[in-house]
Computed example of a mutant assay.
Amino acid sequence: MRIDLTNHTALVTGSTHGIGFATAVGLANAGAQVIINGRHTESVDAALERLSHQAPPENLWGVAADLSTAEGCAALTARVPSADILVNNVGIFGPKDFFDVTDEDWQHFFELNVMSAVRLSRHYAPAMADTGWGRIVFVSSESGLNIPTEMIHYGFTKTAMLSVSRGLAKRMAGTGVTVNAVLPGPTLSEGVTAMLNEEIERTGRSAEEVSRDFVMEHRPSSIIQRAATPEEVANMIVYAVSEQASATTGAALRVDGGVVDSIA
């Protein structure tokens, strides 16, 4: 299978590192014009420099915007008025006991993880429908199904993304626009590596080794028994936005390593 996204424009939010960065590389190498996004100009510029060594630089450009606010989303859509591929990847996570999570924490997680995707999808989807082709992907998580007790506020946002993506897929029925959610499991991104850094430094073991122990302790149902790589998750996203995935919509596509113990 050869995925060719030539003549398509893809916006990947939160793409200066991790799954978003790997997705940007995959999309650009498939021929798409790719807009990466991060909060700060410095991080966007650094990501573009890294990307230029892994994908055709002529296929890449970036926009700095903080998508945790309506104003930040509006600033991004003003700079990027149209795109026919939207990957709603931006998000934050972090363990915190339910009784220590403040109202402000709940609101911040909801605004960034959920409302950024709502606002951008609301902007880009109508034009996709007008042209008869479009792809929207919500990067959810297996934590949206297996709500982690140490991150209830995070799991809640990922469940919300599943609801929005399924509902929007039904709303776009018959338009040529597909809407899907991708559910990564534990993934060895920069954020996860940072979370495990204390144990990595204490033991002198590699990030891969420490993350494997973390998976087996906290996600023992994992079938692959390790963390996925960002590239493994990005592969599913690139497929989901391709021409070949034209009959896949309203789906929750799991790249969780088998963590979710379900056959459906």
Rank of each mutant, 00 (worst) to 15 (best):
A55D: 03
N88M: 07
S52G: 00
L162N: 07
R135T: 09
R119S: 09
I147Q: 04
R119F: 07
I85C: 06
Y154A: 11
V139K: 04
S143T: 13
C73W: 10
P81Q: 00
L60Y: 04
V80Q: 05
S82G: 12
A28Y: 06
A129Y: 06
H40S: 07
A117E: 14
A30I: 05
A129R: 13
A47H: 04
P81I: 00
V44R: 03
D105M: 06
H108G: 02
I36L: 08
H108P: 00
T159K: 06
N88I: 12
G155Y: 11
L60C: 02
D66H: 11
R79P: 00
N89S: 09
G134L: 09
V44D: 08
E49W: 02
F98M: 08
D97F: 14
R135S: 11
R79I: 00
V139G: 05
S140F: 15
H123L: 09
W106H: 08
L27V: 13
K170Q: 14
S121Y: 10
A117I: 15
H53F: 12
A74Q: 11
E42G: 01
F98H: 09
L168Y: 15
V80R: 04
T69W: 05
G72H: 01
A64R: 02
Q33V: 11
P57C: 03
E42V: 02
F99R: 10
K170P: 00
D97K: 13
S121N: 07
Q107D: 14
R171E: 12
M151P: 08
I35L: 05
E142Y: 10
Y124D: 03
V34Y: 10
M115E: 07
E71S: 07
L67Q: 01
S82L: 13
H153K: 06
E58S: 10
V34T: 12
I36T: 08
H53K: 12
C73N: 07
T69S: 14
V164M: 06
E49T: 05
G132R: 01
G62A: 10
V139T: 15
A74M: 07
L48M: 12
Q107H: 14
T69V: 02
S143Y: 06
P148K: 02
T77H: 01
H53Q: 12
H40I: 00
N37T: 08
